[in-house]
């Protein structure tokens, strides 16, 4: 299965709006995409090869390549490089994998599907976009590198896994869902958190509205580990105990941070 392959004809001079370029779209070469302030045919920027079988591969990416996979419902998009802002924005299903890094608002407001990013991501991973009060509500995001500020802001469902560090203000106003940070947590994390779970290596970085509730053997961890490959990887074999912090108590929140040292 090779699918459709899009190879950039050269470096981009302006931001490229890739919204609408999805598996199953007819006549991709003539599909209008945003380029700077105007719209041009995709074929002018990319060489199109192969046939669409539900998989689109972008050979080589760019930090200027915005909204890749926005609204994806099924099928697969593979980017063999970096992408810009809004990766997978609003996607409902399917799979996106990016070998390089992604810009701001990666996975913003997705409701399903899976996004895997090999490198780092910019600010507001999985967060609520403009004019929205809710961020990602379902699906899975795995970031191989580190995330910028406000990762999982207003998250309300799904699992976000950051294998590296999270920037300042992670999980701000988080509504529900799970954020896993395997590296270091930036300052002021979880401020305004309503419900939801943070899985962390250390409590350093949690905002001051979190309060410790002791170490517990939680049956729930055993269940999550069996239902989420990402959480299982984070916990490691046989781990069933975690230090529980509740927060953000300053805003009446009932969220939790579970600390599982390596």
């Amino acid at each position: 299965m090779s699918g459709l392959t899009l190879t950039p004809r050269g470096a981009f001079d302006a931001r490229v709006d890739f919204a609408g370029v999805l598996p199953g779209v007819a006549d991709v070469a003539r599909l209008p995409i945003g380029y700077g302030g105007c719209r041009i045919a995709l074929g002018e920027l990319f060489e199109v090869a192969g046939a669409d079988d539900g998989r689109v591969t972008i050979e080589g990416g760019s930090a200027l390549l915005d909204s890749v996979g926005a609204g994806l419902a099924d099928g697969e998009i593979v980017v063999k490089g970096d992408v810009g802002a809004g990766l997978g924005r609003g996607m409902t299903g399917g799979m996106i994998s990016v070998k390089g890094s992604a810009g701001a608002y990666a996975g913003s407001e997705i409701t399903g599907g899976k996004i895997a990013i090999g490198g780092d991501v910019g600010e507001r991973l999985a967060a609520a976009g403009d004019a929205s009060r809710r961020g990602m509500s379902g699906g899975v995001i795995v970031v191989g590198g580190s995330a910028g500020s406000r990762a999982a802001e207003r998250l309300r469902g799904g699992v976000v896994m950051i294998e590296g560090d999270a920037g300042e203000g992670a999980a701000t106003d988080l509504i529900a869902g799970t954020l896993v940070v395997a590296g270091r947590l930036g300052p002021n994390a979880g401020r305004g958190m309503k419900r939801g779970t943070l899985l962390l290596r250390s409590a350093d970085g949690l905002s001051s509205g979190f309060s410790e509730a002791g170490e517990h053997d939680l049956v729930m961890l055993r269940v999550l580990a069996r239902r989420s490959h990402e959480i299982a990887t984070f916990l490691g074999a046989g781990v069933t105990k975690a230090q529980r912090y509740a927060g953000d108590l300053y805003s009446g929140g009932k969220g939790e941070a579970l600390i599982v040292p390596r």
Binding site: G138, G157, G158, V159, A176, G177, T178, R195, T197, H216, D217, L218, V219, M220, V223, L224, R227, S228, I231, K254, E256
Partner: peptide, 24 residues
């Protein structure tokens, strides 16, 4: 009101804090 719901892997579980710990 202390119940916690978690939706992971497409399934929702509930955690009910009880004197012994949590009922899942």
């Amino acid at each position: 009101g202390w119940q916690i719901s978690k939706m992971v892997g497409g399934k929702r579980i509930w955690r009910l804090p009880v004197m012994e710990g949590e009922f899942v």
